[in-house]
C-alpha cells in the first residue's frame, strides 16, 4: 500500500515535468506551424531565417521575450496584474492530467475526467478578466469583458455537445469513451455535436474568427495590451497549449482517440494516432483562423444563443431519445 502510494507520487511528479516540457515544446512548434500555415495561405513562405525553414524562429522569439523588461503600469493593480499570467497557465496544466494519449498513457484516468477539464477551463476566463481589469487600461478591460461574455455564451453549447457523447457512452471517463469508439468514431454518429464542439472550442480558446477579446484592429491587443516580456509570453503559451488540449479532447471525444483509421491494426502505438489526429485538428483550427474574418460581437452572441444552443439542445434531445429506444 505504502509502496504503491510512493510510485503514484513519483508518477505524478515525472508526469508534471514531462507535461511542462511538452507544453513548451508544443507551443514552440505550434507558433512556428501557425506562421508557416498563415504564410503559405497568403502565398509567402513565412519564417525562413533562423534554422532550416525558420524552425528555430520561435526559440529566438522566446529568448527575446525572456530578455525583455517586465513593465507594470503605475496605475495597475500590482498583485492581480502579476498573478493573472500564472493563473492562466494553471488550468492548462491540469488538463493534461486526464488526456488519454494511449491506453497506457493517461496520467490519471478519473471517472469524471471530462468534468475536470471543463471545470478548470473557467479559470482561464477568470485569469483573463483579472489581467484585463488589473491593467487599468480601457482596451484591456474591454477585451476582458468580451472574453467573459463570449465564454458564457459558448460554454453552454460546448457542454451540451459533450453531454450527448456522455449520454451515448454512459461514462465521463476518457478511456471508456475512447474504447467505445473502437468500431465507429463518434463524429459519424454525432456529426452535429462534433461540429458544435469544434466551433465552441475555437471560441473558448479565443481563436479567430472568435478572437474578439484580443481583436488587434480595434483593441490594440485586448486583455494583454499592458503585458510585456514573459508575462505576455505566458498568455501566449497558454493560448497555444489550450489549443492542444482542446484538440486532444475533441480527438478523444469524437475522432476515436488512439484508434487508427479504418479499424485496421497497423501495429503502430496508439499515441501516434492520437497525436496525428490532434495535430490535424490543430491544423484545421489554424486553417479556419486564416480563412475567416473576425465576427462582430452581436453576431457572436446571436450565433451562440440563436443557433448553437438550440441546435445542441435539439441534438441532445434526439440523442437521448435514440439511446432510450435502441
Amino acid at each position: 500500500m505504502g509502496n504503491e502510494l510512493g510510485t503514484e507520487w513519483v508518477r505524478l511528479i515525472i508526469g508534471l515535468f514531462v507535461v511542462l516540457a511538452f507544453s513548451q515544446l508544443n507551443a514552440l512548434f505550434l507558433v512556428w506551424l501557425e506562421r508557416k500555415v498563415a504564410g503559405h495561405i497568403q502565398l509567402r513562405p513565412g519564417p525562413m531565417e533562423v534554422g532550416p525553414h525558420g524552425l528555430l524562429q520561435t526559440i529566438a522569439d522566446g529568448l527575446k521575450l525572456v530578455g525583455k523588461e517586465l513593465i507594470t503600469p503605475r496605475a495597475a493593480d500590482r498583485r492581480l496584474f502579476v498573478m493573472a499570467p500564472v493563473l492562466v497557465f494553471m488550468p492548462v496544466l491540469v488538463g493534461f492530467l486526464v488526456i488519454p494519449f494511449s491506453p497506457e498513457l493517461i496520467l490519471r484516468d478519473m471517472n469524471v475526467g471530462i468534468l475536470l477539464i471543463f471545470a478548470f477551463s473557467t479559470f482561464t476566463v477568470l485569469a483573463i478578466l483579472a489581467g484585463g481589469w488589473a491593467s487599468n487600461n480601457k482596451y484591456a478591460l474591454l477585451g476582458a469583458i468580451r472574453s467573459v461574455g463570449q465564454s458564457v455564451a459558448y460554454e453552454i453549447p460546448l457542454l451540451l455537445a459533450v453531454l450527448s457523447v456522455v449520454l451515448m457512452t454512459n461514462s465521463m471517463r476518457f478511456s471508456e469513451i475512447v474504447e467505445a469508439q473502437s468500431k465507429v468514431w463518434f463524429i459519424f454518429l454525432q456529426p452535429v455535436a462534433g461540429l458544435i464542439f469544434l466551433i465552441c472550442a475555437t471560441a473558448e480558446t479565443n481563436r479567430a474568427p472568435f478572437d474578439i477579446p484580443e481583436a488587434e484592429s480595434e483593441l490594440v491587443a485586448g486583455f494583454h495590451t499592458e503585458y510585456t516580456g514573459m508575462r505576455f509570453g505566458l498568455f501566449f503559451l497558454a493560448e497555444y497549449t489550450n489549443m492542444f488540449i482542446v484538440s486532444a479532447v475533441a480527438t478523444s471525444l469524437f475522432f476515436g482517440g488512439w484508434h487508427g483509421p479504418l479499424w485496421i491494426d497497423f501495429k503502430i502505438p496508439g499515441i501516434f494516432w492520437f497525436l496525428l489526429k490532434t495535430y490535424i485538428l490543430i491544423f484545421v483550427i489554424m486553417w479556419v483562423r486564416w480563412t475567416f474574418p473576425r465576427i462582430r460581437f452581436d453576431q457572436l452572441m446571436n450565433f451562440s444563443w440563436k443557433v448553437m444552443i438550440p441546435l445542441s439542445l435539439a441534438n441532445l434531445l434526439v440523442t437521448a431519445l435514440i439511446v432510450k429506444l435502441v
Binding site: 468534468l115 473557467t122 458564457v152
Partner: peptide, 25 residues
C-alpha cells in the same frame, strides 16, 4: 468525491461567479 468537487467548480466558479462579473459591469 471528484464529481461533486468538479461540479462545484463548474457551477459556482464557472457559472455563478461569471454571472456576478456581469453584474459588476
Amino acid at each position: 468525491s471528484l464529481f461533486v468537487a468538479f461540479m462545484q467548480l463548474l457551477i459556482y466558479v464557472g457559472a455563478i461567479c461569471i454571472a456576478i462579473v456581469f453584474a459588476i459591469m
